[in-house]
Design a protein around this nucleic acid. Structure first.
Ligand code: SF4
Ligand code: SF4
Lengths: 165, 165
DNA sequence: TTAATTGCGGATATAATTTATCCGTGATAG
DNA sequence: CTATCACGGATAAATTATATCCGCAATTAA
């Protein structure tokens, strides 16, 4: 029941990209440098995001990643599922069909039991909650809450990247 | 984002115990045999449940486990957290404080960002959903839905265990 | 009191998973 | 054409999760 930390990286990358002008893109190396995380590993996460159509890749020199669609159409859930996979976190192994008291392969176990359905329902409300939060919201909060000094630093860093291309 | 399968075992054990008369208890070996799962490993899960006050242990011959409290005061969430631990599934590593644009250990990062709070809120609704389901509900469903033949088999198995003590 | 049974906790071995790295291929701007 | 860059597959290392074992203390039947 642990969420990989690459999920956090992925969310931060998407948020950063969502706040950028449309014609700007950042390479995996840039994104890794910006967040202070290992490049080759972050690249894997970015690949998943691009496979799932969340990011668009521009190859060749000056290439990199940018958001594939509008920031308000990408939710936290999209990113989380892209990295973690969309399997249910509760895997029922049907143990009621094992042991000495089990009936032999009967059809008596038709519908999912309360245990499994409760677990699945809980996961659904969890997903619904994450679905509500779009990248737009995250970008907006950064604009409102971020320290002006950091905004300035970030802008300079971006300009630096952009000019060197 | 995977839940250990011992969680499922634990829930099944608790449900079985919850359906038993008050003065009956089952040993770890019995529970393992009943569910067709390895005894030494299930024992670990039972220990956690007993450490967290969900199960009560009777030691010595004829000893074993029984529910520590009323079935309607134990929820799915209690069991899940007992086995999985109650850490949040989203671990924020404060990566906004890393990289070249970060401000040096300033207090500018006072409140948790939207990302973290959205993840935590989602986990809370998940927990609330599991909290709703008590062992009573599970026992009731078994009584209503279970195949009479299996009920009979189970009863015989239980009598067998009980008489041999 | 003694012998047998049972849960407890620590130590340990094995299997999976996560994390991290590398390189070859293809695409693209200059 | 050539240098740059991302993708994908393969692989290695580190970390967790899973599964097992054994000696100890507690309890009870005889
Ligand atoms: S469906 Fe329910 S009863 Fe059957 S194995 Fe899964 S959790 Fe257990
Ligand atoms: S608090 Fe938010 S911004 Fe900071 S590291 Fe955690 S997820 Fe990222």
């Amino acid at each position: 029941m642990k969420i990989s930390n690459t999920v956090e990286w992925a969310i931060h990358c998407c948020t950063l990209l969502a706040g950028l002008p449309e014609d700007v893109n950042l390479s995996a190396k840039d994104l890794a440098e910006y967040h202070g995380v290992p490049h080759p590993y972050l690249a894997k996460a970015l690949q998943m995001l691009s496979n799932d159509g969340i990011l668009k890749t521009i190859s060749g020199p000056k290439g990199g990643y940018r958001l594939a669609s509008k920031p308000d159409s990408v939710s936290l859930l999209d990113i989380v599922l892209s990295i973690e996979g969309n399997d249910s976190c509760f895997g029922c192994e049907e143990i009621r069909q094992q042991g000495p008291t089990a009936l032999k392969r009967s059809l008596s176990y038709k519908r999912p039991c309360l245990i499994a359905s409760a677990m699945w329902k809980a996961e659904n409300v969890w997903r619904a909650e994450l679905e509500k939060v779009k990248l737009t919201h995250l970008v907006d909060q950064v604009k409102v809450e971020a320290d002006p000094r950091q905004m300035k630093k970030t802008q300079e860093w971006l300009n630096d990247k952009y000019n060197s291309k």
